[in-house]
């Protein structure tokens, strides 16, 4: 068991919109770890697309993912590469 966190920046020009949020939720659901996403004020559970959307993370926002579980590093890797992209998943 490990808790790991990752700070990264939203590169998608439209921010974390529906498609990105959908992908985040899909990635997290296919792993064992519990993952939270935090913006500047609030944080949300990554399995909830509504929670993620309601953070209203626009381009260049800084976000922190915190993963807790045996595949924490793997899931964070996947999320990092997703957020690094400028194109929609």
């Amino acid at each position: 068991m490990s808790v790991e966190s990752l700070e990264c920046r939203v590169n998608n020009p439209k921010g974390i919109h529906c498609r990105v949020a959908t992908r985040i939720a899909e990635i997290v659901s296919s792993h064992d770890s519990q993952v939270q996403i935090a913006g500047s004020e609030k944080s949300a559970d990554c399995t909830s697309i509504l929670d993620i959307l309601s953070l209203a993370l626009t381009r260049n926002s800084r976000v922190v993912f915190t993963a807790d579980g045996r595949d924490a590093a793997v899931v964070l890797d996947a999320l990092q590469s997703l957020l690094a992209k400028t194109e929609d998943p």
Partner: peptide, 16 residues
């Protein structure tokens, strides 16, 4: 399809 996938996630969303 991606719109439908989002809708599927929404209907299962814990918030709702």
């Amino acid at each position: 399809l991606s719109i439908l996938d989002s809708h599927l996630l929404m209907v299962r969303d814990t918030v709702i």
